[in-house]
């Protein structure tokens, strides 16, 4: 049966590139947060893979185990990126169990999960252990991982944060989200390896920036230049970069067409700014993405690709 040749692309190849793209930010987190980051990452990845293997083997009884496709590794890495580097191990393991068990395997495994598993795990932990999840160690403490000095997220006091620090990652925060620059480097890697298209991240950046400017302007009391500065800081601080580049672009839980991706991205940007400015949580990226994940099937139905000869007449 034709076609008899294949392009050579594979799930594994895509996952490998995603992992490669996460490397700069991961290494930076090792550098900033020291041993704690290494421990958290290892725990998260290992427990995700183990849970996937166990569930496949003993619950789903899949004859062919699916850990070889590396998707569990990616989930583990993403989960670790979303955690503070001083989180107790048992919490990480619970998070991994929830991410893989509830977020992914209950729905049938890779390809069937409506929500991004890493985010499901992260939000579960955030709600269950709010204090532990939101006290981040200050970078460059280099101490053993449980007794690092902790600090609140820069989001709580964005006005006084330094944009350059935010951009280069000289701040506290979840492991993977601190350095906007290195996350952008990951974005470039993903684009060049054609793993993702530009639509989702760019639309999130643009929309988050615009809505942030808009809301601050409505609130008033600040010169326009400051508003723009503040909005830029929003982009660089917290989880927007990480979420936009690595989480919102998850194949399984994002729309299929470019038009759909743009809608999805714009709405995520809108939601995240809403949550940050008007909500109880200082951070809203995880929630914004999860909420939009739920709308993906609708977006898919509404946004069909441009059919041949449908829009272009002559």
């Amino acid at each position: 049966m034709s076609p008899h040749v294949h392009g050579g692309d594979s799930v594994k190849r895509n996952m490998r590139w995603v992992i490669a793209a996460m490397m700069p930010a991961l290494l930076w987190s090792f550098y900033s947060f020291g041993l704690g980051a290494v421990v958290v990452t290892l725990t998260s990845v290992v427990s995700c893979v183990v849970f996937e293997w166990v569930i496949n083997k003993f619950i789903l009884r899949n004859p062919r185990n699916t850990i070889a496709d590396l998707s569990a590794v990616v989930t583990g890495l993403l989960l670790a990126f979303n955690l503070p580097s001083n989180l107790p191990l048992y919490i990480i393991i619970v998070g991994a169990l929830f991410a893989i068990g509830v977020g992914k395997m209950t729905f049938g495994g890779l390809g069937n999960n409506p929500f991004n598993p890493a985010l499901v795990g992260r939000v579960f932990l955030l709600i269950s252990f709010p204090v532990k999840m939101t006290s981040w160690p200050v970078p460059h403490q280099m101490s053993a991982y449980t007794d690092a000095v902790t600090a609140a997220t820069p989001l709580a006091d964005l006005g006084n944060a330094n944009l350059a620090d935010l951009f280069f990652g000289n701040i506290g925060g979840s492991m993977g989200e601190v350095s906007a620059l290195l996350l952008l480097a990951g974005f470039l890697i993903l684009l060049c390896s054609k793993v993702i298209s530009w639509h989702i991240p760019i639309s999130i950046f643009v929309s988050a920036f615009c809505f942030s400017v808009l809301f601050y302007a409505i609130r008033g009391g600040m010169p326009f230049a400051d508003i723009c500065m503040l909005s830029l800081k929003h982009l660089c601080a917290g989880g927007i970069m990480l979420g936009a580049i690595f989480m919102a672009t998850d194949y399984v839980t994002s729309p299929m067409t470019h038009k759909g991706m743009l809608i999805y991205g714009v709405l995520i940007g809108f939601l995240v700014i809403c949550i940050r400015l008007f909500g109880n949580y200082p951070e809203g990226m995880s929630f914004a993405i999860l909420i939009m994940n739920a709308f993906v099937p609708l977006i898919n139905n509404a946004c069909k690709p441009k059919r041949f000869a449908k829009e272009v007449k002559k």
């Binding site: 390809g111 994002s254 690709p305």
Partner: peptide, 28 residues
């Protein structure tokens, strides 16, 4: 060359949608 690769679940990457010259959704 003749063998096919192992079939895996659809990960909804939408590469087929981008590749389709008729603007269809092959995965669907």
């Amino acid at each position: 060359e003749a063998g096919r690769g192992e079939e895996m679940p659809c990960i909804r990457c939408s590469k087929c949608v981008s590749a389709c010259p008729m603007g269809l959704e092959p995965y669907l």
